[in-house]
Design a binder for these strands. Structure first.
Lengths: 250, 250
DNA sequence: CGACCAATGCTTGTATACAAGTGCTGGTCG
DNA sequence: CGACCAGCACTTGTATACAAGCATTGGTCG
């Protein structure tokens, strides 16, 4: 360790550089979005070379993104064989459901007596948006995410949301499959309102009950779509191979 | 997509190659262990080049491992600056505590009427081991992990353990700091027995109560050690830099 | 005609070279 | 003596080259 630099100080200066606008982050977010929106369907082959060429970068950031997605369970990497978008694994979906339910219900038990006014207002606006007539499905998903996240923040455990998010990847994809059938998920919006009003009224038991009903309803959708599109689910090992789908990168 | 290979079939043949005995996996597990055991203390600088040289591999697997650890929150990467073992963030510790409590308590609510005999026997042996007189601290940690994991499997949600594990990294480090003070954590072993007997007796409420007490006791240890070793915790941005610790790789 | 098998294209894993950026250091100038 | 500033050493990010392995393919042999 000769003359040069040593470990720099560990202060908030680094927090600035935390805004990693690296190429890897861009690729990671792009791929993750395409997987969650089913633009890259379960079972699709992901070639590092092809993705790199299509995205205009080298293999390195693509590869590192795939490794991250692999740890999230959204991608499976088979050494010397290939990488694939994970099929929807019913067991993992059930796990995500269990975890999400556990966390969100525990949060409802932990609500403070005095609710944060700003968050309540944010939730109110969110619910109003959800009931807008010509609502896009993608917008509804964003609102749904924000609703549950805000509810978690209301209990002071907002940062636990990140863990839920990374765990519920499989659940999200399955939900999306289910929601593409129903034209507009008005039922879910109504359930959201029910939960919110129970929270406002301070009725923890009712809030729990409503939340559980809501989350179970989402889960039931998964089983419904599974009967319709079994090839997107795992465990049916002998199913259709789903050969190299032609992926267009606009 | 000319002549050669296409996407191979997606069958159980691949499950075999899932045994990734790659160099990256070895490096990842080594680094993760050293971080969790505090052999690489919070704040320590991690140079990709140094680690690569010490481990006898190139930068690539080291770098990819650091990226994975970074996503777990155990390592912080600052582009063009350096990588460091994350300091113990009290907020993240609290999050991990909340998440763990939510999941494990929910599992206790979900216990089947008929308990799996093999798992019960496994738990019994585990608890017997925990009360062995001259128990190593590292062994106790392993037993503790196995105990909670088995309890989760008893409720049929064993695979949710993986998420808890990755989320509770910060909690584990903090616990380890706390347990290095107390000579032998006999108190925790006794609490384990209490939980187990409540589960066997079918008393869900008592099991919940005992589990909550147990997990809260672990959490309190964190605050205790924080008063003693503040430099290992974050938020005190002006604290000691902790310069490039000399890490020996035996 | 069927079974076997080598050639070939692809895949990911690893190693290395180069690029861009940061912080310390030490000399220099006012 | 103090402030400034150029240079250097080190960092991670990215690109590329090479290595090892699997699966399909197409020919050959029985």
């Amino acid at each position: 360790m000769g003359g040069g630099a040593v470990a720099p100080r560990y202060d908030e200066r680094m927090a600035r550089s935390n805004r990693q606008r690296t190429s890897r982050r861009a690729v990671y977010e792009t791929l993750r979005r395409k997987v969650l929106t089913l633009e890259l369907p379960p079972g699709a082959a992901l070639s590092e070379n092809e993705l790199a060429a299509a995205l205009g970068v080298s293999r390195t950031p693509v590869r590192e993104s795939l490794i991250l997605l692999s740890q999230e369970g959204l991608v499976q990497i088979f050494p010397q064989v290939g990488s694939f978008v994970s099929r929807v694994d019913p067991a993992k979906v059930a796990d995500a459901q269990f975890l999400r339910e556990a966390v969100e219900l525990a949060a409802l038990d932990d609500l403070p007596a005095e609710l944060d006014a700003d968050l309540v207002e944010e939730l109110r606006r969110n619910l109003a948006e959800q009931e807008r007539p010509g609502l896009d499905l993608e917008d509804f998903f964003e609102l749904d995410e924000a609703f549950h996240h805000a509810l978690l923040r209301l209990s002071g455990h907002g940062s636990a949301w990140a863990t839920v998010v990374s765990a519920k990847g499989h659940l999200d994809r399955a939900r999306r499959l289910g929601l593409y059938d129903t034209a507009t998920p008005t039922g879910f919006a109504a359930q959201h309102v029910e939960i919110f009003e129970a929270v406002l009224g301070g009725d923890a038991a009712l809030a729990r009950s409503a939340m559980r009903t809501h989350l179970r309803a989402v889960f039931d959708d998964v089983e419904r779509v599974r009967a319709r599109s079994p090839e997107l689910f795992a465990k049916d090992t002998g199913s259709v191979p789903v050969r190299r789908n032609v992926v267009v990168w606009e």
